[in-house]
Structure formats: structure tokens, C-alpha cells
Amino acid sequence: MERYTYRRGSKQWDLLAAILINLVPTLLLTIVFQLIPILMASWYSFLKINLMAGTKQFIGFANYLKAATDSRFLQSMGTTVEYFLLRVPLQVVFGFLLSLIIYHPKRWTAALRTIIMLPVVTSMVVVTSILALMMHPSNGLINSLLVTVGLPAQGFLTDPKQALFSIVLITVWKNVGMTMLFFLAGLMAISPSLYEAAIIDGATSLQKHMYVTIPMLKSTFIFVLITTTIRSFQVFGPVLLTTGGGPLNTTRVVVMDIYENAFIFNQLGYASTQSVLLAVILIVISLLQSKLSRRRT
């Protein structure tokens, strides 16, 4: 890659000015609002902070030890993993199937793609509110439809057994369009000659997908799996809005626990520790992605 190079001590003032003017504002904002908070949380994770007395006390790894034995936190980790295990296969498989439907250009594909993408751009608060109202036990549209066709009404977000899966449904409904788009981009990149060769060899349409589409989309699958995993560990808005972690704590995901410790119980040190732990998990997953995607090229 060609670049204009500024060397230390050179007299290319206009080049130096161009570098500073263009880069400094963004770099400064990144440092102040992103890097410093991360460093601050790392430091706070070793402190016991008393807001009332205004004191900060260094307590070493005590917060980390607490996290390792805090049943509430561990349970929220478990719930997050459960959420991840429910959401990722559903969103990836559904997104992949949708991309196969949309891929072959027909009169209706463009319209269908637009419709499937609408929830992606609609505000999370609106999507969550409307779907939660649809899932309302007594007046919701879904129960009305179920009862109309003779099925029993469900509790959805109010039923401890169904609440987490209801949130999975809301988030998958909202985000599956994005997954579909990534698969579509992958499908476009497959050379048609591969399919022609498969047809000449007598492949059925299922075999065509098994032996051409899926192997050729391997890197897309890795990318989609990892980004959806990261999103799963971040889930928060829909939980805060609908259940607040209930019923019976069945939807208390990690970020919900952090939020409560930080903004309701004012345990700033401990909430920082939890934030650091979550950040470490997400960084590890991100690094895994860049390692996997580097291997293929």
C-alpha cells in the first residue's frame, strides 16, 4: 500500500498539518470516551468504592474472588450462555435459509429482502415493545391467533420457562435480516461455474448446497457465528425493557447484572470487575475471529 510518509524532523509542514488535523480529533475522542473508560474500569476493578463516604480503597483481587463465588453473577453468566446457545443456531440457520430463498432473482425477491430487513433498521425499543405486546398473555396477538386455531394460550415473557426463549425470538426476529445479508454477500461471491460443474456431475439441488454452497461459505459461517456470539454476550436492551431480569431471575443476563450493580446497588468497584470480565470474554472471541479469518487467506 502506497502512502505519503512523514518522517520525524522533516520540514514537510503541510503533510504534518494534514496528519494532525485529520487524525487528532477522532483519536482524542476515542481515547477519552473509549480507551480511558476501559483503563478506568480495569483500575476500579481492584477498588472498593464507597459513594456515601467518598472513599476508594485498594483491595487487590477481592472483587475478582467475589465474582468467582457470587452465585448471582455465575447464574447470570449461565443465563447468558443459555441465551447464546438458543439464539446463535436459530439466527444462523434461519438467516442462511432466507439467503437461499432470496438469492435466485425473481420478481418478489427484492421486496422480500426489503421486508426482512425492516426490523434491522427499526428502533430496538419499538421492535421489543411491539413484539412484547404481541406476546402479551391475555391481549396479545399471538395468543389470539393460537386460541383462534384451537391451541392453548402461552405465558411467553411472564412464564419462567419461556421468558428467555421469548427474548431470543425478539432478538432473532430483529437481527436475522443482517445475518441473511452476510450470507447473500457470500453467495454472490461463489463462481457460477462451480454449480454448473456440479449439475454436469448430476448433483441434485440438495447435493449442490451440501457440496458447493456450504463449503464455499465456510468463512462467512465463521464470521456470522462469531459476530452473533459477540452480540449474544452483549444482550441487554430487550431484557431491561421487557422482563428486567425476571421472572424468577430467568432472564438476568450478564449485562443486566452489571447494570443493577452499577446503577441500582452503586457497587462501582464490583460492577467494574464484572465489566472487565465481560470485556475479556469479548476480546478473546474477537481475537479468535481475526485468527480464524486470517488462516483462510
Partner: peptide
């Protein structure tokens, strides 16, 4: 690599 949800609290404090 560190999304907002993981630095919600420290960003608020800053």
C-alpha cells in the same frame, strides 16, 4: 473489540 455494554459504567463515570 470492547462494545458499549462492557464499558457502560466507566463511560458513564468519565
Amino acid at each position: 473489540m470492547v462494545p458499549f455494554e462492557a464499558r457502560m459504567l466507566p463511560t458513564f463515570l468519565v
